[in-house]
Simulated assay, not measured.
Amino acid sequence: MLAQTALAGATSFRPLRFSDDGTFQISIFKDLHFGKSKDLVSYNNDRNSITVLNTILNAESPDLVVLNGDLITGENGFLENATVYIDQIIGPLVDRGLTWASMYGNHDHQYNLSAEALLEREQSYANARTQRMVSGHDAGVSNYYLPVYGSDGSSDPKLLLWFFDSRGGNYFRELDKSGNIVPQPNWYNKTIPLLAFVHIPTNASLAAQTVVGIDANSKPGINNNVPLAQQGQGWCEDGTNSNDCAYGGQDIPFIKALVKTPGVLGVFSGHDHGNTWCYKWDSELQLPGVGGGNGLNLCFGQHSGYGGYGSWIRGSRQLLLSEEALGRGELDTWIRLESGDVVGSVSLNGTYGEDLYPATPNDMTHS
């Protein structure tokens, strides 16, 4: 009944625009992990995740909802039933007349789970803006961009939102000559402008964590996944998948594009459930093969779903952009928790990393 209700409530959406007051808000939900298993525990986890969505959307008023990867735990999903999880996830959005954009993560790409089928299901709702602009076996599925136009009604975009499928997981229904499931590479290497969303973080985030360090007051957020899992993890330099290789460096072209493209404000990732901080990457951190950063903000969201590992309190990162602040390369962000509390409220401006903020409590919730 949920799917029928949601489909019946779908409406057409105009192009994304800044509001009359010149602002545009994004709510990011990451790592929902619906369908973790086929038992009562998983059923209750998914119900709790729906409660998280409802609670946060009741407290916030986003112009766009971003579903930042691992919507489903695909290892336990199958083509004939996985689309039902899409209906459950987007039900709270459709009920409120909200529009959303997704990109898929490693758990959304599995032998028994087709990301193409997930996209088709999303696109059956008029509320969905998720697209596929890059075709090909090695491109992933959810690679696209969305323009956001100005409040004055002009036809020139004020902001571009780029979504990248960081892949990972396994290819759908593919076996090698020995009958083994074929792993899918977990990196991306295209040039992007302005604001980016990608499920698996780049090696720059790992370097920020392990080389510079994440101070609790200047870079507030929990920092429990140390070392974090980045793009290229578990792949050798020659492109073979092996537990003997820590990192193959395949995301270096992607990182170079991030720091060399003018106007990129930030990259927002998921994947590492126990990390919620932001780091402004400047010349302090020199990354081998890349060099220093240009002030790019590397941010994690909050683990949103009750599926997946970890019991950190669930929540959603909020982004508030204004046409006026865009000219200075600034935006405000905070995390709204399922408790209703707000933590990690910061301004990603020119002095972020120097300003001091309250440390984020390392709270847990247990289902």
Rank of each mutant, 00 (worst) to 15 (best):
A3L: 08
Q4P: 02
A8W: 07
A8R: 09
A8C: 07
G9L: 14
A10E: 15
S19W: 00
D21E: 15
F24L: 10
G35V: 01
K36E: 15
L40W: 06
D46T: 03
S49R: 03
V52W: 03
T55Q: 13
T55M: 05
I56A: 14
L57F: 12
A59H: 06
P62V: 13
L67E: 13
N68R: 02
I72S: 04
I72P: 01
D87T: 03
P92C: 14
L93Q: 12
L93W: 10
G97I: 04
G97A: 11
L98P: 10
M103S: 09
H107D: 05
H107K: 01
H109N: 14
A117N: 09
L118P: 01
R121I: 00
T130K: 04
G136E: 15
N143G: 10
P147E: 11
D156F: 01
K158T: 10
F163A: 10
D165C: 04
D165K: 02
N170E: 14
L175C: 10
P183A: 04
N189D: 15
N189P: 00
P193C: 12
A196P: 02
V198D: 09
H199T: 01
I200V: 06
P201N: 07
V212Q: 11
I214C: 04
I214V: 13
I214W: 03
N217I: 02
P220T: 10
P220M: 07
P227A: 12
G232Q: 01
G232K: 00
N241E: 07
N241C: 04
S242Y: 03
C245V: 01
G248F: 00
G248M: 00
I252H: 06
P253M: 11
I255H: 05
K260A: 14
V264W: 12
L265F: 15
G266H: 07
G266F: 06
G266M: 10
G270V: 00
H273Q: 12
G274C: 09
T276I: 01
W277E: 08
K280T: 13
D282V: 06
Q286T: 12
P288R: 05
V290W: 11
G292E: 12
N297M: 14
C299D: 13
G308K: 02
Y309L: 11
G310Q: 09
R314Q: 13
R314G: 08
G315H: 09
L321F: 15
G327R: 11
G327F: 05
G327N: 12
D332N: 14
T333N: 13
W334Q: 12
W334T: 07
E338D: 14
G344V: 05
V346C: 13
L348W: 11
L348F: 11
L348C: 15
N349V: 03
T351M: 07
Y352E: 14
L356Y: 10
Y357E: 10
